[in-house]
Computed example of a mutant assay.
Amino acid sequence: MTIDSHQHFWFYNPERDSWITEDMQRIRRDFLPADLEPVLKQNGIDGCVAVQADQSEAETLFLLQLAEAYAFIRGVVGWVDLRAENLYDRLEFFSQFEELKGFRHVVQGESEDFMMRPEFIRGVRQLAAFDFTYDILIYPNQLKAALHLVRTVPEVPFIIDHLAKPYIKDRKIGTWSNYMAEIAKNPNVYCKVSGMVTEADWQNWKPDDFRPYLDVVFEHFGPDRAVFGSDWPVCLVAAEYDQMKSIVEDYLKPWGEDARQKVFGDNAIKFYNL
C-alpha cells in the first residue's frame, strides 16, 4: 500500500487562514477530499493522512468527519491544547475515534524554547497513555528544543514534519544537519520527507537543490524512519503533486524497491498504525 503521510483540507477563511499570504494566491480557496482523490489516483497513492492546519478542536472533528466519509483518508493528525489542565479528559474523549492517530501544534509560530516548557512537555507525555503520536512542526532555530523534547519523552513516537524546514533557498545546512543527526539517534523519532519545495526558490528550484538535505535525512534516519508526504495543497505554490513525488522517487532509485516501499507506505503504516 502506498501512503501520502501529510496533506491538508480546509474551507478557506481569510481571517483564520492568515498564514496563506498574498504570494500564495493559488491556495486561497477550498481544498477538500473530492479535490485530492483524483490526484492520488493519478499518482498511484492508495491513502493519506490528513493533518491539522488550524489550532482548534473543531479542526480535529472536521478532519475526523472527512475520514469517516472518505475511505482513502486512513488517518488524522489533529489538534488539542496540550497545555490544558483538562488534557487527560480531552485525550480520553478523542481516543474513541479510530482514525485519530496523533496530534500537532504549530510550534513554528511559537518561541524557540516553546517545546522545552514544562507544561508542554507534561502534555506531550500524556499522549503515551492513549498511544497517540506527535508531529513536530518547527523551523531549524527550534531544533535544540525538539532534541530536548524527544530525549525527555522517549515513550511517545515523534515525527518531524518537512525535514524541520531547512533553509534550502539559502543553501544553509550546517547547524540544521548537526541537530538532525542528534535527533535521529532517538529511535522514537521519524522524519517526513515532505514540504521541501516550499523552502526552496518557488519559481526556480531544481531537483538537485534537495539532494544535500535528503542525504542528511537518509544517512541518519535511514529508509526505515523516513516517510513520504506531499504537503498538498501547500506544495502547489511551488510544485505540482507529481513533481513533489518525483523528487523523492528519483532520489530513492539507487536504494532499490524495498526502500521505496518503506518510504512510500510501510513506514507511515507502522508509525501511524494505519
Rank of each mutant, 00 (worst) to 15 (best):
V77A: 01
M115A: 12
A146I: 00
P38D: 01
A84I: 03
L82G: 05
L100Q: 06
G47F: 07
G78F: 05
P33Y: 00
P118E: 14
D131E: 12
A128V: 08
E59F: 10
L40C: 05
V76D: 04
I121W: 01
P140D: 05
A58K: 10
Q126S: 13
K101N: 01
F94S: 07
K101V: 06
Q55L: 10
L40W: 00
C48G: 04
A146G: 13
G75N: 02
D46S: 07
L100Y: 09
G102R: 10
V124A: 09
G78E: 06
A58T: 09
R117E: 14
Y70K: 01
V150Q: 08
L91R: 05
F120Y: 15
E85W: 01
E68Q: 14
P154L: 08
Y139C: 02
I138Q: 10
E112A: 13
I136H: 06
V124Y: 04
E37A: 10
V80H: 04
S95I: 11
L91A: 07
Y70E: 02
E85F: 06
E110F: 09
L147R: 08
V49K: 02
T60F: 10
L143D: 01
E59G: 07
V150E: 03
E99N: 10
L36K: 02
L143G: 02
P154R: 11
K101Q: 09
N43S: 00
I45C: 04
L137T: 02
G47K: 05
Q126G: 04
D81G: 07
V150D: 03
V150I: 10
